[in-house]
């Protein structure tokens, strides 16, 4: 109970100081989109942390977390630059891999997806979740559920096809 209370407090502090946390990330990254991503990562960490410590200075703790994540992100970005340049050079058209706007997520689409997933047969949904959300390989899923790897692949395709149809019907 006590620990839960702490967790709630931390997320409240987070939301209250969102702007300051974002500025902290922005100062390190100099890129508003990456800064936003870092702030969101930090938020996920705060909400998902299983062992919330007794944090005496929650804001200082959050600021340090955002700084650390921003520095990590900065290093990663430097590493990725090579990859992205190569992709963009190959494609010559805006709005695909290097342009996240192409896949901006709408709440409406999320609702449609939620509904589509609930319509899937149980086994299909299970296979799909193991693959997409839990990161299991085809082989691992096949042996876990005692089905063939080719059936695993078919069921994953079925799930994606069904979600696509749901989005298109809108």
């Amino acid at each position: 109970m006590f620990l839960n209370q702490q967790a709630v407090d931390l997320s409240i502090v987070f939301v209250a100081h969102q702007a300051q946390l974002r500025r902290t990330a922005l100062r390190i990254l100099r890129n508003p989109e990456r800064a936003e991503d870092v702030v969101q990562d930090a938020y996920l960490k705060v909400t998902e942390a299983a062992d919330v410590l007794n944090i005496k200075q929650p804001l200082a703790y959050l600021l340090q977390m955002v700084r650390n994540l921003a520095i990590d992100c900065h290093r990663r970005a430097a590493f990725e630059v090579g990859l992205f340049e190569r992709e963009e050079e190959g494609l010559h058209v805006p709005a695909l891999m290097g342009a996240p706007e192409a896949t901006a997520i709408s709440r409406q689409h999320l609702t449609l997806i939620a509904h589509a997933l609930s319509e899937l047969p149980e086994r299909t949904r299970r296979v799909f979740e193991l693959h997409r959300l839990d990161g299991h390989t085809h082989c691992a899923i096949a042996s876990k559920l005692d089905i063939s790897t080719s059936l695993v692949n078919i069921l994953i395709h079925d799930a994606i096809d069904h979600c696509r149809a749901a989005l298109r019907s809108n």
Partner: peptide, 13 residues
């Protein structure tokens, strides 16, 4: 709580 953010994450491929 993520819905409080100004935008949902822009995730690329």
């Amino acid at each position: 709580h993520l819905l409080l953010f100004s935008r949902l994450p822009k995730i690329a491929v």
